[in-house]
Computed example of a mutant assay.
Amino acid sequence: MSDNPALSEPAANEQAFTAEERAAVYRAIAERRDMRHFAGGSVAPELLQRLLEAAHQAPSVGLMQPWRFLRITDRELRGRIQALVETERVRTAEALGERSSEFMKLKVEGINDCAEVLVVALMDGRERYVFGRRTLPEMDMASLACAIQNFWLAARVEGLGVGWVSLFDPQALADMLGMPAGAKPLAVLCVGPVDAFYPAPMLSLEGWAQPRPLSEMLYENRWGEAE
């Protein structure tokens, strides 16, 4: 009997996928990694289009579809984005105090090594979308994160690595890319072939932090009360 719940448990109902299909979905989720090491190469245009279509099928609050994707094909511009990230990396290290030197040893991006670079941003004019955001305006950000996760999982299925880089000044990047007022970049995605996927999250392998079990984060009825 497999340890994978998708194979060891019967289908929940007639709407469920087959055992093999479920296993593939659970495997993609379990083996998705935030990649920092890339093997160069290229991504075929039709494959990149598939990944973007997968991202575009993400759920969004009020069907506002707040995501915008900018493909960076100019190598000089890619270098300027990398320099922006490096500036923030140094500032982050300074803010970390006693862990500064430890942080500086980490590889935090693969912008100059990956096949493709995408900047993912929130669109401008989001204030006119009230449905689902009157009390939780940050749901636009949650929607964009869902799109990135779709992209990430689809890329893993296709054998491509993705790294989400968030070390940058968003206004500086917005200005660099000519974004309109109100638009906000949230991710620089490094995409492309990799020699191997990390067997565990890189920060765990590097000893920066260790993942905590679900049992510590699952409550029942009231905050802090375990099942």
Rank of each mutant, 00 (worst) to 15 (best):
A145H: 15
A145R: 11
L136I: 11
E76T: 12
D74N: 15
A154L: 03
E158M: 07
L63S: 14
A181Q: 12
W67D: 01
R80V: 13
M64G: 10
M141N: 12
G178H: 09
L84P: 08
V108W: 07
E76H: 15
L173D: 06
F168T: 04
N112W: 05
L63C: 06
V90D: 07
A83W: 03
G79M: 04
D74A: 11
L136A: 13
Q149R: 12
A183L: 10
R126F: 07
A183T: 06
R128F: 02
A174E: 01
C146N: 04
P185Q: 03
G182I: 09
P66L: 00
R91Q: 11
V108E: 08
M139L: 09
P66C: 06
T73D: 08
D169M: 02
V119D: 00
F103M: 05
L160D: 01
F131G: 04
A115I: 10
G97Q: 01
D140L: 01
I148F: 04
G182Q: 08
M123S: 15
D175N: 07
V90I: 13
A174P: 03
E98K: 07
R126Q: 10
F103R: 02
P137I: 00
D74P: 14
T135F: 11
V90Q: 14
S101I: 14
P180H: 00
S101Q: 13
R133Y: 03
I148N: 00
P137L: 00
G163Q: 03
T87F: 02
T73Y: 03
T73M: 00
V120F: 02
N150D: 01
Q82C: 11
